[in-house]
């Protein structure tokens, strides 16, 4: 019994560690994408969300939020305080949504729908943070429509990618999802 628990814990730590590193790598790669004109700087596709979504569904809620926290800290160290807040808020909302949606037994939404909702949550979190920090609520009207549209597209992509790799990732965690 104890051996099994220990092995599970070790596995979990290793899993979170690897996933965390992967999330950071994806985050970093995204910053290399030049800022699109018309989008607020810092609004990126959010491919690292694939990692948090995976953890949310196949591992623990705590693990998913842990990686979200790490992403925010990483953003803070590399890009500054504002970036940390934006990443943190967007990530928190997105991960929370992922936890709720991916862990529920109901199958009312497909991976694409879930991916889109998570992406939308991520962007909403970032937008609200940007408004509060800059003190200009008018950003909502300015960037809102564009970010929502953008989220539909990126959510579509991340959802699809997650579905595709899920069978392979499931093997790592011995869970059939």
């Amino acid at each position: 019994m104890i051996m099994k628990e220990k092995r599970n814990i070790t596995r979990r730590v290793a899993l979170v560690g690897v996933m965390g590193a992967l999330a950071l790598a994806l985050s970093y790669l995204e910053t290399l994408i030049p800022a699109f004109p018309g989008f607020p700087p810092g609004a990126k596709p959010g491919f690292s969300n694939i990692v948090t979504m995976f953890l949310a569904s196949c591992s623990g809620v705590g693990d998913a939020f842990f990686v979200t926290l790490i992403k925010a800290l990483f953003a803070g160290i590399t890009r500054g305080f504002t970036a940390m807040l934006m990443s943190g808020a967007g990530g928190a909302l997105s991960t929370a949504a992922a936890c709720i949606l991916l862990r529920s037994r109901k199958n009312s939404l497909g991976y694409i729908g879930i991916g889109i909702i998570c992406a939308v949550c991520h962007n909403i979190g970032q937008l609200i943070t940007a408004c509060l920090i800059s003190g200009t609520p008018s950003l909502i009207w300015g960037y809102g429509p564009l970010l929502l549209l953008f989220a539909v597209i990126t959510g579509f992509i991340t959802g699809t990618v997650l579905k595709v790799i899920m069978p392979y990732l499931g093997r790592i965690t011995d869970i059939k999802k």
Binding site: G60, V61, A89, A92, L93, A96, A97, C99, I100, R103, S104, R105, I128, C131, L132, G135, T136, P137
Partner: peptide, 30 residues
């Protein structure tokens, strides 16, 4: 699974309420 869901829902609702409250306050004030 259910516990986690409830926790998550509560956490999100609290966050959302705080964020919306701050936004509204700031919006009206400015």
């Amino acid at each position: 699974g259910l516990k986690a869901n409830i926790k998550a829902i509560i956490a999100v609702s609290v966050c959302a309420a705080i964020i919306i409250g701050i936004c509204a306050f700031d919006f009206i004030r400015s």
